[in-house]
């Protein structure tokens, strides 16, 4: 016994040596200096979604690939955390910056957690922009905004009002959101409340519930709300996960046609609900164009054709886009209905 523990101690000593020397050091060769940009070198562009594998982000990536192909000088890498973990997203940004990225475009999962990594990347000379969702101050140069928060929020309320029969119809409605901390959703909710209180609607908001980006939870939250407010006439599912969850709950309760669901999601994920009438309208922006514009903006920053203070950005086939402060605005929302949804596949 005694002999064993003695040997163990020696080995732990070796372990320490390995721990000290090996781990942070490695056998570092001289290597090339980081971040040195050659003349006709390609722009290395990392496009980082909140969560890899969601159809919404995949459709954005399609547009981004089209832009990279059209530009020709962009090497596009699309990668993000498959589990949607903000910590992992931050770690990935650190790795990309060390690898010598020219542009990193992030849709931050949690701006506070990812912010320091984005700032560190900027200190290394990387052009960091945000797309789809914004980050914290000084963590990025530009935000490629799909549509203003107001346009999205008003769009959802106005769609609901129209689908329920017009501005004079009064009814109870509820919101099923993502997380209570989700920055995008919280701004939309503010603007939705504003619009609901205005003369454009007689709707009465009875509850705002989180679904934690979990479709099952969105489903059960919606069931609970239907029990708690029997007079409820409409649900807003304001994330790509809470929308189908809420619609499924209404469909399974047999309330199709009595209770309307509207919100934000990709057309494919809502197609069956639109076809059976549970959902009359799906609100979204053109995701492929969002990816396309993001790559264009990043490339323009890297090559110096876009810089702070610009008021307009020439987005090629997308036309001229407005720049408001440090935000490049893609444009208006899109509403997919039973008539138009067949034209889209994403």
């Amino acid at each position: 016994m005694k002999k064993r523990s003695g040997l163990g101690l020696i080995l732990v000593g070796i372990a320490l040596g390995v721990g000290c020397g090996g781990q942070p050091g490695g056998e570092g060769p001289e290597g090339a200096a980081p971040g040195t940009a050659g003349e006709d070198r390609k722009v290395t562009f990392y496009l980082v979604p909140k969560k890899k594998g969601l159809p919404y982000f995949s459709s954005c990536a399609e547009g981004a690939r089209a832009a990279a192909a059209a530009l020709g000088n962009v090497e596009l890498i699309y990668d993000g955390p498959t589990d949607g973990s903000p910590e992992k997203q931050a770690a990935m940004i650190e790795t990309f910056a060390l690898k010598g990225a020219d542009v990193i475009a992030v849709s931050p999962n949690d701006p506070d957690v990812v912010g320091p990594a984005m700032r560190k990347a900027r200190e290394k000379g990387v052009h960091v922009i945000t797309w789809d969702a914004d980050g914290v101050a000084d963590s990025r140069e530009f935000f490629v905004n799909q549509a203003t928060a107001q346009a999205i929020a008003y769009g959802m309320v106005d769609t609901m009002v129209r689908d329920l029969g017009g501005a004079e119809v009064s009814a109870d409605v509820a919101i099923v959101t993502a997380y209570l901390t989700a920055a995008n959703q919280n701004i939309w909710i503010e603007h939705m409340k504003e619009r609901l209180a205005s003369s454009a609607s007689q709707l009465n908001l009875v509850a705002v519930k989180p679904s934690d980006e979990d479709q099952k939870l969105a489903f059960s939250v919606t069931q609970d709300l239907m029990k708690a407010y029997p007079a409820i006439k409409g649900f807003f599912g304001i994330s790509s996960v809470s929308f189908p969850g809420a619609a499924e709950a209404v469909r399974q309760a047999g309330k199709t046609g009595e209770i309307l669901v509207t919100g934000l999601a990709t057309p494919n994920s809502m197609r069956s609900y639109v076809e059976d009438g549970t959902v009359k309208s799906v609100v979204l922006w053109n995701t492929a164009e969002l990816g396309y514009l993001t790559v264009l903006v990043g490339e323009a920053l890297a090559t110096g054709t876009l810089s702070a203070g610009a008021t307009e950005f020439d987005a090629g086939k997308l036309g001229k886009k407005k720049v408001e402060g440090d935000q490049v605005i893609l444009g208006d929302i899109m509403v997919f209905t039973k008539e138009t949804i067949g034209d889209f596949d994403f």
């Binding site: 781990q23 942070p24 050091g25 490695g26 056998e27 570092g28 060769p29 290597g31 090339a32 980081p34 770690a91 650190e94 790795t95 060390l98 690898k99 010598g100």
Partner: peptide
């Protein structure tokens, strides 16, 4: 080879 550089390894080790 850049992966093995000291500064890279040090920063990656923070994970």
């Amino acid at each position: 080879p850049r992966f093995l550089q000291l500064d890279v390894q040090r920063e990656l080790s923070t994970h």
